[in-house]
């Protein structure tokens, strides 16, 4: 019964875990922690919204808990001086395949990764993000801007590379 449940939701939840972590092992650990929480709290689900949405919230909250435990917002400071591209360039992500997008988010520094995921994917406001991660609203905004800039830059580089390869072929 539990395994069937797991098999139904594992692929989507593993994608969530992958987005909030920096390596495969950490993603697997998060998957495990998330499913344990889901199974322990399944009786609390009130059938008021979608089950998938409820499970996703648990996974996101678990990821945030782990992020806060590690106190990682500062880790993004290392990328502070990177060139920040124009925000509009993030739309270029649309041109990438799922796996490539996930990989790029996965490779972001944890601070940028968390803010980007929470704002862009989960739809939280900066105020909510600041409360969730224990950072200021301003930090949340600047982290998001830098995350977008890094992603845009990498997408651009990636597209340039693929274009070059196509031309040579």
């Amino acid at each position: 019964m539990q395994k069937a449940f797991y098999e139904q939701f594992a692929p989507k939840m593993f994608a969530v875990c992958f987005r909030y972590t920096s390596n495969q092992e950490a993603a697997q650990d998060l998957l495990q922690d998330g499913f344990i929480k889901v199974f322990k709290n399944l009786h609390r689900f009130r059938f008021e919204g979608s089950l998938e949405g409820w499970i996703r919230r648990i996974f996101v909250n678990t990821a945030i808990e782990q992020f806060r435990k590690k106190s990682l917002p500062q880790t993004s400071i290392g990328e502070k001086h990177m060139d920040v591209a124009d925000e509009d360039d993030i739309t270029a992500l649309e041109r990438l395949a799922e796996k490539d997008i996930l990989k790029m988010i996965h490779e972001l520094a944890p601070g940028y990764q968390a803010v980007f995921n929470l704002y862009v994917v989960e739809g939280y406001s900066h105020k909510e993000i600041s409360e969730l991660l224990g950072i200021s609203e301003g930090t949340s905004k600047s982290q998001l801007a830098r995350a977008k800039g890094i992603l845009a830059k990498r997408v651009k580089e990636y597209l340039n590379e693929t274009n070059k390869i196509r031309r040579t072929i």
């Binding site: 594992a10 495990q32 993030i90 996930l102």
Partner: peptide, 30 residues
């Protein structure tokens, strides 16, 4: 751009990724 971001966000939210083969065994044991 805000609208585009939302679209991208929604798309990303629907992504799926096959978990490792032994993931269930470790969850079951835990």
């Amino acid at each position: 751009p805000l609208n585009k971001e939302q679209e991208i966000g929604q798309r990303i939210a629907q992504f799926e990724l096959t978990p490792p083969v032994l993931a269930w065994e470790s969850i079951e044991a835990a």
